[in-house]
């Protein structure tokens, strides 16, 4: 039997409302066939009254620059609505990718969901 290909786990978004924010858990691989859907779904979550977005990334095992572009688009829309996007606990590989692209200078990264919630005063 052939071994399973790496970074082949199904991609999913689990969305939870928390006051003026949505908390989104991204799981699996955000491969190129998923990126347009990811972009649309993240951007449409930002709206008046719910301008904050928290992306919990601990179970996201792959993302490309197009996926990061989707996160940046949501970040810019959140800022336009006087909101904030924060990322939580990315894997070492994705944290490294964010650092290489200097995205970590634009968007705050928290080690825990609790610290992201506290930063946005959600509790």
């Amino acid at each position: 039997m052939n071994p399973s290909p790496p970074f082949d786990s199904p991609f999913s978004l689990d969305i939870e409302r928390a006051g003026r924010a949505h908390i989104v858990r991204l799981r699996g691989s955000a491969s190129m066939d998923q990126v347009e859907d990811l972009h649309r779904r993240l951007v449409e979550l930002i709206e008046p009254g719910v301008p904050h977005l928290v992306l919990e990334l601990s179970e996201l095992d792959f993302i490309s620059s197009a996926g990061i572009g989707a996160i940046m688009a949501a970040h810019l829309k959140a800022r336009a609505h006087e909101g904030t996007l924060r990322m939580v606990n990315p894997t070492p590989a994705i944290r490294n990718l964010l650092r290489l692209l200097h995205i970590d200078r634009q968007i705050g990264i928290d080690d825990t969901l609790a610290s992201a919630r506290a930063a946005l005063d959600l509790d």
Binding site: N2, P3, S4, P5, P6, F7, F62, L97
Partner: peptide
């Protein structure tokens, strides 16, 4: 990616190849 698995490429190298391939495509 199936070929990389067959040859036993590690996670970091597979990540690098998948990322670069997606960027090129």
């Amino acid at each position: 990616m199936a070929e990389l698995a067959r040859y036993g490429y590690d996670s970091d190298t597979s990540f690098a190849i998948k990322l670069s391939l997606e960027e090129a495509i």
